[in-house]
Every structure is written in C-alpha cells, then in structure tokens.
C-alpha cells in the first residue's frame, strides 16, 4: 500500500513538473510546481521526515510560491507571454536534459547502496533531534546563514527602493 503511494506521488511529481516547464502561462507553471512541492512533502512524510515536510510546505508552498504569485500579479503577467522559441533550442534543451538524466542514472545504476534499512530510528525526523543538530553540530552554518539573509535583504532593498530622484 505505502509502496503504491510512493509511486503515485512520484508520478504526480514528475508529471506536474513536466507540465510546469512546458506550460506557456507562468501562473499555471507556478501552480503545477505547487502540486509538485506538495507531493514532495508527501514523500517526506513517507520517509518519516515529518518536521521537514511541514517546514517544506511552509517555506516553499507558503512563502516562495506566494512570492512568485505575488510577483506575477504585481507585474501583471498572468496572461500568456508570447515568447519566440525556436524548435532547435527546444530540441537541444530536451536532449540535454535527457542526456544528463541518462548519464547520472547510468553512473548510479551500478552503485550498490548496500544499506539495509532494517534498523531505522524513526525519531531522526523529529523536531527535537533536528533542533539539537541545528544548534549544536550545525551551529556555525546556522549563524553564518544569517549573513546570507542579511545580504539578500539588503539586495532587495537596493533593487526596489524608490530613488529620491524619482519623486
């Protein structure tokens, strides 16, 4: 049963992402990606990473996708944008994607992952354990990522704050 669920979710994931990259209307692309993200969140739950799956929904679906939708509406781009696309580029792009997929898969095909998931600690996906990891093992990365956010924030301000001169 759970195995079937995995394959269903995977299929949804793949199909929606394919639809996402091919759809002309950006708004729909965002929505397809949203579906994809939800199914990824479902996969997280199946992997017993409940905390991450919630964070994933909050961050991606709740924040990032909303940001996208907001920008699309803000720029009034909900109508399909006519973008000239040569067939050649399409073919090349699809071919490249397929090649990368093929190369990576063949590289990994022979790998014996060798892990017998018999002994699985169900708690590793819990907030308490992850929290300890984040604030102990990963304290330094956690701290320095504040710099990352700070610079992203400054960047957004620089880009879109109105000049004095504009007024």
């Amino acid at each position: 049963m759970t195995a079937i669920l995995f394959y269903i979710l995977s299929a949804v994931c793949i199909i929606s992402s394919i639809l996402m990259i091919f759809h002309k209307n950006a708004m729909y692309s965002v929505l397809y990606l949203l579906i994809c993200f939800f199914s990824v969140a479902g996969l997280f739950v199946m992997l017993n990473a409940q905390f991450l799956s919630i964070v994933h929904v909050i961050v991606y679906a709740g924040a990032i996708m909303v940001l996208f939708l907001y920008v699309i509406m803000f720029l009034n781009m909900s109508t399909p944008v006519t973008i000239r696309k040569s067939k050649l580029i399409m073919v090349i792009a699809c071919f490249t994607g397929a090649m990368v997929c093929f190369v990576l898969t063949t590289a990994l095909w022979a790998t014996d992952f060798g892990s017998d998931p018999a002994i699985v600690d169900q708690n590793i996906g819990m907030a308490s354990i992850l929290g300890k990891y984040l604030f102990k093992e990963f304290l330094i990365p956690f701290e320095v990522s504040s710099i990352l956010f700070l610079s992203a924030m400054v960047g957004v301000v620089i880009f879109n704050k109105k000049d004095y001169k504009d007024e």
């Binding site: 330094i140 320095v144 960047g155």
Partner: peptide
C-alpha cells in the same frame, strides 16, 4: 569577503555550499 573566508577554510561540505552562496549572492546584487 566573509563568504570568501568561509570558502577557503571549509572542512565540511555544508560550509563549502554556504560559503559559495555567501560569496555569490552579494555579488549578484
């Protein structure tokens, strides 16, 4: 520059990744 310093002293792949990003994102801006 902080990103650069993180990058040259990384000992964990997480720091490699974060260092690269801290180095790069300000540069995009």
């Amino acid at each position: 520059i902080i990103g650069g310093i993180l990058l040259v002293s990384f000992q964990n792949l997480t720091m490699l990744f974060l260092g690269t990003e801290i180095l790069s994102i300000p540069l995009y801006i």
